[in-house]
């Protein structure tokens, strides 16, 4: 149920998982296959780099600590060779400093272990979409009847102006950029608020419901949906 949006994408996403922990790897590979992805697995840095070099993957999921060659150096080598395949780091090292070093080495996203599988899926989907061609810098976005102008910073739905606070605007902007995809609470917290910790109360839910009240309340079809066990998704009527 919670994986529907990825399955709805239709075309297969090819994922390479580089992870040395056998059980963790088995769990990730199984989960991704069941979500309809084509998955390859490498158990150490050297194999991972060789496979990744073939360029046949849409996204790489790489553990930071690997035998033979650590994840950071695998990604650095890939980037030096001009490969731009998006990389999602998995790591037990979750400090801001570790995160920064991962992103600096050429990673596109960073997920700290332990993580919820829904979180991994959502992030993979976002990375794949980001890498797909034809996504030039937009100044206008549209989902259903909802329009956002990034230059004039105006939001309208079905011709009606919607007045948003700056943070609500950023929240909606992120949701619209990833329309049709599941975005998790952690992703929102990281990208809209730039926080990397978990607030105890579900503050994100409150912000989202405020936003929902502004963009959905007076309209017939809701655009902002809650995905149970995962997060939120913004999508137009089917």
């Amino acid at each position: 149920m919670q994986h529907q949006s990825i399955q709805a994408m239709g075309n297969d996403v090819r994922v390479l998982v580089v992870e040395d922990d056998v059980e963790a790897a088995a769990y990730i590979v199984k989960g991704l296959r069941e979500s309809g992805h084509v998955v390859d697995h490498a158990a150490d840095g050297d194999d991972g780099l060789n496979l990744a070099m073939s360029g046949q993957f849409d996204v790489l999921v790489i553990d930071r600590m690997l035998p033979k060659q650590d994840g950071l150096s695998v990604v650095s080598s890939l980037r030096d060779e001009g490969r731009t395949t998006p990389v999602l780091f998995l790591s037990a090292l979750g400090d801001v400093e570790d995160r920064v070093s991962g992103l600096r080495a050429g990673g596109d996203d960073y997920l700290t272990k332990p993580f919820a599988f829904a979180e991994l899926l959502a992030r993979i989907e976002v990375l794949v979409r980001r890498a797909s061609p034809g996504e030039a810098q937009q100044t206008k976005m549209q989902v259903g009847g909802l329009e956002m102008d990034l230059l004039s910073r105006k939001v309208m739905r079905d011709g009606q102006d919607i007045d948003l606070q700056p943070r609500e605007f950023r929240l909606l902007e992120y949701l619209m950029k990833h329309a049709g995809q599941v975005v998790t609470r952690t992703m929102l917290l990281e990208n809209v608020w730039e926080y990397h910790f978990d607030p105890q109360t579900n503050v994100i839910d409150v912000h989202v419901s405020r936003l929902r009240a502004k963009i959905d309340k007076n309209f017939e079809t809701p655009l902002l949906h809650t995905v149970r066990g995962a997060g939120y998704t913004l999508r137009g009527p089917e």
């Binding site: 608020w193 926080y195 607030p199 109360t201 503050v203 409150v206 912000h207 405020r210």
Partner: peptide, 13 residues
């Protein structure tokens, strides 16, 4: 300020 802004709707609620 950011933290306040994050919690303002929660307090409001």
């Amino acid at each position: 300020q950011d933290a306040a802004e994050l919690y303002e709707p929660v307090a409001d609620e």
